[in-house]
Simulated assay, not measured.
Amino acid sequence: MRETRAGLSDVARRAGVSPATASRALTGSGPASAASRAAVLAAAEQLGYRPHPVARQLASGSGTRVVFAVRDQRADILRDPFVTRATAAIATALFPYGLGVASRHLSLDCAPDLDELATDRGLAALVLAGHDRAMLDALPSRLRGRTAVIGAGGADVDSAAGVGALLAHLYVIGRRRIALIAGPPWLAASAAPVAAYRELTRSAGLPARIVRGDFTSERGRSAARAILRRWPDTDAIAAVSDATALGVLQALAALGIPVPDDVAVTGFDDGPLAGAVHPGLSTATHPVEEIAAAAARSALGEAVPVTLFPSSPVFRATA
Rank of each mutant, 00 (worst) to 15 (best):
G98D: 07
G98E: 03
G98I: 04
G98R: 05
G98N: 10
G98W: 05
G98V: 13
G98S: 07
L99T: 11
G100R: 13
G100P: 02
G100S: 15
V101S: 06
V101H: 06
S103D: 12
S103M: 10
S103I: 09
R104D: 10
R104I: 07
H105C: 08
H105I: 08
H105N: 12
H105S: 11
L106F: 13
S107P: 09
L108Q: 13
L108Y: 03
L108F: 03
D109G: 13
D109S: 14
A111P: 07
P112F: 01
P112I: 14
D113V: 12
D113F: 02
L114H: 00
D115W: 06
D115L: 08
D115M: 08
D115T: 08
E116H: 13
E116K: 11
E116M: 14
E116Y: 09
E116D: 14
L117C: 03
L117A: 08
L117H: 03
L117Y: 03
L117K: 12
A118H: 01
A118D: 04
T119R: 15
T119Y: 06
T119E: 15
T119Q: 13
D120N: 14
D120M: 10
D120T: 12
D120G: 02
R121S: 14
R121I: 13
R121C: 11
R121V: 12
G122L: 00
G122T: 07
G122E: 11
G122K: 04
G122S: 08
G122I: 12
G122F: 08
G122N: 07
L123G: 06
L123R: 04
L123N: 04
A124M: 08
A124W: 04
A124I: 09
A125K: 00
A125P: 03
L126W: 01
L126T: 00
L126K: 05
L126H: 02
V127H: 14
V127T: 10
L128N: 00
L128W: 00
L128R: 01
A129S: 15
G130E: 08
G130M: 12
H131Y: 02
H131Q: 15
D132E: 03
D132S: 09
D132M: 06
D132Y: 10
D132G: 05
D132Q: 03
R133G: 09
A134H: 11
A134K: 11
A134P: 06
A134G: 09
A134E: 15
A134V: 07
A134I: 04
M135Y: 00
M135H: 01
L136P: 02
L136T: 01
L136G: 03
L136W: 00
